[in-house]
Design a protein around this nucleic acid. Structure first.
Lengths: 228, 228
DNA sequence: ATAAGTATGTTGAAATTTCAACAAACGGAG
DNA sequence: CTCCGTTTGTTGAAATTTCAACATACTTAT
C-alpha cells in the first residue's frame, strides 16, 4: 500500500490522519486494490453497492444509462477522489449508476460495512474517518446540486455557459481544459452532441469564447451570471 | 422543546438517541425554534449557510431561482426532515438555494459549528449525531441523483412518467398524492407547465393514468421501466 | 351563495432540440 | 508520411418545447 500513500494522503477520507495510522487503518478496513483497463466497468449498475471506491490512478466517470440507451454522465472522477460512497453509505442494495474507467485505472475498494461498523480494535481514527466521510458526502451532494443548476437551464447555450462559467471559477482562470470530450460534455449537459457543437460554434463567432477540443477560453464572461 | 419530541424522534439526525439525551443534546447544540408564515423565506439564497434546519411542522421547498427568474424546485421538505445540511456541512459560505415555507412552518435551527465541533461536555451522543448526519447526507445525495435521473430524460412525457413511477414505488401503491401542484411539478421536472398539463391529458386519454389535481393513479405502469 | 382569486387545461405559433447523414479535422500506428 | 479510426463540425427536416393567451375548474372568504 505504501506506493499509493502520496495519493491516499490527498483523499478526503484520510485527512487529519497520520501516514502510519492510515496504513494501519487500511488493514483494519480490509482495503484492496484492483486495476481496470480503459473503457472497462469498475462498478456496474444493478450490482450490490457494497464497496466504496477510491481512485488511485487514471480517470473514471459516473454514468447513468436508461432503458432506451440514453447516457447521462453524473460526474468525472480524478485520482484521490472517492466514488460510489453515497450509494454504499445510504445502504442501497444495488447501484443505480455505473462507474467506468476512462483510462487504465487503479482503484482501492473498501467494504462499506467495515467503515460503518467500528472495528474491534477500537482504532481511534475511525471517528475521524466517519467525520471525513460526512464532509465528503456533503461535498458530493453539492456537486449534484451544481449539476442540477446547470442542467435546469432550458437551452443548450445556457447549459453550456453555466457549465463553462462554473468551471472557469473553479479553475480560477478564463482558460481551462474540461474533463469531457464533446460527446461526454453533451451527456453531462443532457443535450444533443451536434446541437452542442453548433452552439459552441455560434458563441465562438459571437466572440464569447475560443476553443480547441477540450480547451476553452472565455471572454466577456460577465454577461451571464452564475448565481453563486 | 418537549412538545416537539414526537417529531424530533423521527428525525434522521436523532436515531438511536434516547429522549432525555436528545433534549440534553439540543441544549448543547444551542437549538432554537422559529416560525414562518406561508410563502415566507426560511433560508435565502446568498445568505450564510450557517444553520441546519429541521422541519417541525408545515411543509417547505428547496428552490433555485436563476438570474432570469426561472424557478427550479430541488425537493420538498416534510416534518422531521432535515434541510440545508449539505451546504452547511460542506462549509459553503453562502447558500446556492432558498428554502421557502409552503404552509405555516415551525423550524428548528442548529448552528453547524455546534455540530461539527464536539462540545466541551464531551457528550457521548455527538458521535452518534455525526454518524446519523453522515447517513442523512448519503440519502440526500441519492435524492439529488434521483432528480437527475428524472430530469435527464429528454421529453416532458418521459420525465413525468419516470417521476410518477418512482413515486408510486416509494408510496408502494398505484394511487398516490404528489407533494406538488402543477406549476411546482413543472418546476421540479424542469419543463413548461402548460406542456406538462397537455402531456398529462394525453396519458389520461391513452389510459396510462387517471388524475385529479395532486392525486394520480397509474395503469399499465410496467410499460416504462424505472431503471432501479 | 356569490364573487374573486388561484390552479389547471387547451390551443396555435415561434423557438429550440433532436436526429440522421455527411464533411472536415485530428491523432495514432505502422 | 500515409492510412484509418475517432472526434468534431455542419446542415436541414422532423419532433418537441416554450410561450402567450384564454377557457374552465376549483377554493376561499365574505
Amino acid at each position: 500500500m505504501k506506493k499509493y500513500l502520496e495519493t491516499l494522503r490527498k483523499c478526503p477520507l484520510f485527512q487529519q490522519i497520520e501516514d502510519e495510522n492510515l496504513l494501519k487503518m487500511l488493514g483494519c478496513l480490509g482495503a484492496k486494490v484492483e486495476t481496470f483497463d480503459k473503457k472497462y466497468t469498475i462498478f456496474a449498475k444493478g450490482t450490490p453497492a457494497k464497496y466504496i471506491g477510491i481512485l488511485l490512478s487514471g480517470s473514471a466517470q459516473i454514468v447513468q444509462v436508461d432503458y432506451y440507451g440514453n447516457r447521462s454522465i453524473l460526474g468525472s472522477v480524478a485520482p484521490s477522489e472517492v466514488f460510489a460512497e453515497a450509494f454504499a453509505c445510504a445502504g442501497m442494495d444495488t447501484l443505480p449508476v455505473s462507474v467506468t474507467a476512462n483510462e487504465p485505472c487503479e482503484v482501492m475498494l473498501i467494504n462499506r460495512d467495515h467503515i460503518l461498523h467500528t472495528c474491534q480494535n477500537h482504532c481511534g481514527f475511525h471517528q475521524q474517518l466517519i467525520f471525513n466521510l460526512m464532509k465528503d458526502l456533503a461535498y458530493k451532494a453539492i456537486l449534484f446540486q451544481q449539476k442540477i443548476e446547470i442542467t435546469s437551464k432550458r437551452t443548450t447555450k445556457e447549459k453550456l455557459m453555466t457549465y463553462l462559467l462554473l468551471y472557469a471559477k473553479k479553475a480560477n482562470s478564463n482558460s481551462f481544459e474540461i474533463p469531457f470530450d464533446r460527446q461526454e460534455l453533451a451527456d453531462y449537459l443532457e443535450v444533443d452532441r451536434s446541437g452542442l457543437s453548433a452552439e459552441i460554434g455560434k458563441l465562438r463567432k459571437e466572440g464569447v469564447l475560443e476553443n480547441h477540443r477540450k480547451r476553452f477560453t472565455l471572454y466577456r464572461s460577465n454577461s451571464i451570471p452564475t448565481g453563486q
